[in-house]
Nucleic acid binder design. Structure first.
Length: 293
DNA sequence: ATATGCGACATCTGGTCTCG
DNA sequence: CGAGACCAGATGTCGCATAT
């Protein structure tokens, strides 16, 4: 009967660690910021989800002993051993230790768009309190231990640990059930289908926001929450997919492909392709042809 | 409580141009 | 056709205000 990694974490003893990583030139969207393993007893311990700034992040806290309390938008939960709490900030919730109580847990603090997107999906589906299987707990504990013990922290390693934690929670919340058809908010869905239908036309964010009937700032926020990436990134990906298809499936010249894919000219298209695929257009065409022989 | 709008900001990118 | 320098304008964010 497992929990091998969990016991290693318990052996590791109480500890807290914050990683102060430099801002990367190529941002990772699921990032571990800090982690810890602690015991609280007979003390005042309370966190309010509205009082922790406005920069969004999320906390995963898994109880190993004792009991914590969570008030999540009016619903009260008991956090007993084996239960994992997932909360995002800012949000109307509070978690605390009852007077005279005892609470032992390990926790991870993450940020990044993808981490928040996953958290939102999990919260929508399963709520803020999860009961992972033994294996899933071990995966969480391993991620926590990784963040605590990482000898030379780097954005990549911190992201790997954070992703491991989120995917464990994902499995807890969704298991192997088939995905329920994704329902995007109506405005975002309108914008997305407009993008797909008009990929060869200019698609400035301002106009997409108009189609979604939102302000530009709010549109970018909602789009990121729903799809895990910025609108311009999404558009660029769609354009690139089209460019690649046309390069491989047709003999169209570069300039024509650029126009058909929404790029102003072949020159710029080549620059983008090079940045994302490390290949010039005709090089990509040749390489693809070679690979399919 | 939550969703949305507003305006300012620093940063990034699309598009142009030159050259090989 | 492709690489690279350049920069106005576009983009993503933030803190805060307002609406539902």
């Amino acid at each position: 009967m497992g929990n091998f990694v969990l016991s290693k974490l318990l052996d590791h003893g109480h500890d807290i660690r914050s990683l102060n990583l430099p801002r990367s030139a190529a941002p990772l969207h699921c990032m571990g910021v800090s982690a810890g393993y602690e015991q609280r007893r007979n003390e005042v311990y309370s966190w309010d989800g509205m009082q922790r700034g406005t920069a969004p992040f999320l906390v995963i806290q898994h109880t190993t002993l004792g009991e914590g309390r969570l008030d999540y938008a009016g619903t009260k939960h008991r956090l007993t051993p084996g239960k994992t709490m997932l909360v995002t900030m800012p949000h109307a919730h509070r978690y605390w230790l009852e007077r005279g109580g005892e609470w032992e847990y390990f926790w991870l603090l993450l940020n990044g768009r993808e981490a928040l997107r996953l958290a939102r999906e999990i919260l929508d589906n399963a709520g803020p309190v999860l009961e992972p299987t033994t294996t899933q707990i071990d995966r969480l504990a391993a991620a926590c231990l990784d963040l605590l013990q990482m000898p030379e922290p780097s954005p990549g390693l911190a992201s790997t640990a954070a992703y491991a934690a989120m995917t464990s929670l994902h499995d807890t919340a969704f298991g192997s059930r088939p995905a329920p058809e994704r329902t995007l908010p109506a405005g975002i869905a309108r914008a997305v289908s407009h993008i797909e239908a008009n990929i060869s036309a200019p698609l400035p964010v301002e106009r997409l926001a108009g189609i979604a009937e939102m302000s530009r700032a709010h549109f970018v926020r909602s789009f990121g929450a729903a799809l895990g990436k910025a609108p311009s990134d999404y558009v660029l990906e769609k354009r690139l997919e089209r460019v690649e298809r046309l390069l491989l499936a047709t003999e169209m010249p570069v300039a024509a492909i650029a126009e058909a894919s929404g790029f102003a000219d072949g020159n710029y298209m080549a620059k983008v392709l090079r940045r994302h695929r490390k290949m010039a257009p005709l090089e990509f065409r040749a390489a693809g042809r070679r690979a399919s022989l």
